[in-house]
């Protein structure tokens, strides 16, 4: 009887200590808390907790007989046990035991059109190779809001219009009209009979642009282009300029992925946040997204490769046959590819 009293007190003590550790961890911030809970001294704590939980099943008949109690304690046992085995320390242990190279998490950075089977493991900073390659077909962002175009006039007046091809819009104060003539998803120039002609390419890159016609009161129609990726130019001799106001409220980041094994396409999927691709024991998560740095040749629109590299993090665990990956805080930051100040709205 008295041994049960000690176990009871032991349970209370363990729970109280766990609470104190957790409050302490909450003040450390995620990174340090993770290191703390995975440290060697903490392993002792997890071990004792597991041991007492298992001992409880032998000591207390009610834990075996009452279904609800069995469920909650069995569940705790599974979560704790799984947590220990699936931790980095657990992986290291089994790697040594079975002389293998499993890892818990890792990261791949792919540019559009690129494929790779190399994963940078978070655990050992080592590079691991997957038994298949992942190819990034296309990476893209979807927005809730639409792009817009803002006209600036010399006297600091500015005016926004929605980015829809269509009717002439009056500029306030009777300054004239503006009209969007063409929308380009992937603006390129080609030479036809010695003339440079803009066209919409169906290549995988993207280079959003609009062609406008602006007619100042009493003037002739004039053509100009605005580009998402290129800042507004001051146009010599003009009293106005126009800029592309990129959409800002991200709805989703997506990547079209292909899994290639032995030269054959074995799986194809579009991943997005909350929707990883699962193949061969690994999950591949949409992790970050960014645009390539623009080259020095900004002036040659046709020559630019605004490729969208997407970074996917994939994981491998030979041991569990399921993989984990990570999505960092960076993800919550808005993708900043527009260089212009933007007025909300």
């Amino acid at each position: 009887m008295s041994i049960k009293r000690y176990i009871n007190l032991m349970i209370l003590l363990l729970l109280a200590v766990f609470i104190i550790f957790s409050v302490n961890g909450a003040f450390m911030g995620a990174r340090r808390a993770q290191a703390f809970f995975n440290s060697i001294p903490m392993m002792t704590f997890w071990g004792v907790l597991l041991f007492v939980l298992i001992a409880g099943f032998f000591m207390y008949a009610s834990l075996r007989k009452r279904f609800g109690l069995m469920l909650i304690h069995g569940g705790c046992l599974l979560v704790l046990g799984g947590g220990v085995l699936g931790s980095e320390a657990g992986f290291r242990f089994f790697n040594q035991l079975f002389d293998q190279q499993s890892f818990t998490k890792g990261q791949m950075t792919l540019h559009q059109g690129q494929s790779s089977n190399r994963v940078v493991s978070e655990m050992e900073d080592s590079i691991n190779e997957l038994p298949f390659a992942v190819r990034l077909e296309k990476a893209f962002v979807e927005y809730y809001d639409e792009p817009a175009i803002r006209l600036h006039f010399g006297d600091a007046m500015h005016f926004m219009i929605p980015s829809q091809v269509g009717e002439k819009i009056e500029i306030p104060d009777g300054r004239g009209t503006v009209q969007i003539i063409t929308a380009y998803k992937n603006f390129k120039m080609k030479q036809v009979d010695g003339q440079r002609i803009p066209y919409d390419s169906d290549g995988p890159e993207s280079n959003p642009a609009y062609q406008l016609t602006i007619t100042l009161a009493g003037g002739k129609p004039e053509t100009l282009f605005v580009f998402e990726r290129f800042p507004m130019h001051a146009m010599p001799g003009k009293i106005y300029s126009a800029e592309y106001v990129a959409p800002q409220i991200v709805k989703d980041y997506k990547s079209d992925l292909q899994v290639v094994k032995d030269g054959e396409l074995v799986k194809q999927a579009t991943i997005e946040v909350n929707k990883p691709l699962f193949y061969g024991g690994f999950h591949f998560y949409q992790h970050t997204f960014s645009y390539d740095q623009l080259g020095a040749d900004q002036r040659h629109y046709g020559g630019i490769r605004p490729g969208c590299p997407a970074c996917i993090s994939g994981l491998r665990s030979d041991f569990h046959r399921s993989a984990e990956a990570l999505l960092s805080e960076a993800f919550y930051e808005k993708v900043r590819h527009q260089r212009h100040e933007r007025v909300a709205g």
């Binding site: 961890g25 995620a30 993770q34 990956a325």
Partner: peptide, 19 residues
């Protein structure tokens, strides 16, 4: 697990809910 690829992340909000 679906959003960040991990069941548990040790961030303060999670730890408080554990507390």
């Amino acid at each position: 697990k679906y959003a960040w690829g991990d069941w548990w992340g040790w961030d303060p909000k999670e730890l408080w809910s554990l507390v």
